[in-house]
Design a protein around this nucleic acid. Sequence first.
DNA 1: ATTCTTGTACCATTATTCGTTAACTTTACG
DNA 2: CGTAAAGTTAACGAATAATGGTACAAGAAT
Lengths: 101, 101
Amino acid sequence: MENLDKKHVTTFEEHLEKRYGAPGTDQRIAFEAKAKAFAIGELIKEERRLSNMTQEELALKTGTKKSFISRIENGKSDIQLSTLYRILEIGLGKKVSFTIE
Amino acid sequence: MENLDKKHVTTFEEHLEKRYGAPGTDQRIAFEAKAKAFAIGELIKEERRLSNMTQEELALKTGTKKSFISRIENGKSDIQLSTLYRILEIGLGKKVSFTIE
DNA sequence: ATTCTTGTACCATTATTCGTTAACTTTACG
DNA sequence: CGTAAAGTTAACGAATAATGGTACAAGAAT
């Protein structure tokens, strides 16, 4: 094995930097926030399953369709705040609050 | 003063019911979630002032413009989740987490 | 009162969510 | 297996968030 490159990407942080620019830059800021936002679907999926509901049931309770729930759970949408409230608070019967430390 | 109506709207809850339907209905669900979402601006404004920042400084940090921050703080937008993260986490250095009870 | 800073209001454009239907895929189970 | 339920995906229009810019208004400081 020879060393083709003097320097190559190894860590995830280096990858991000190469791909989206250094931390603090506009592009990078947007990327990081988006990544977090899209990850909320996992939490929703978890909570839904704990509540023993199907996507269709959750959709019915929140006044939407199962296809929309699926999109969210699979991280395909940067949902609006009201949508998060609708699903977590009303659909799953959990009380949501922001913890700001 | 005469009593024109046998029954009239008095409480806020009655007003909501008349206007947006009974609790549990789709329209009402959407309304309540929207109301909460638009109210997040107050929290942001509060946190920003505690951090001794101007709207312009916050805007710069989050890669946007002060006019946008102003709109949010005054409850004129149902922001996306990534926008919340950008402002509270990246802009104000607060850790945002959802507490689900 | 005048200037400087901070914040708000508008406008135009772009990008994305939301709502929905329908078709398709995967999973569960008799 | 085969079939039904559950979940995913694509596609569409409509509504609206995001963005950049500019002009205006309100407050603070001198």
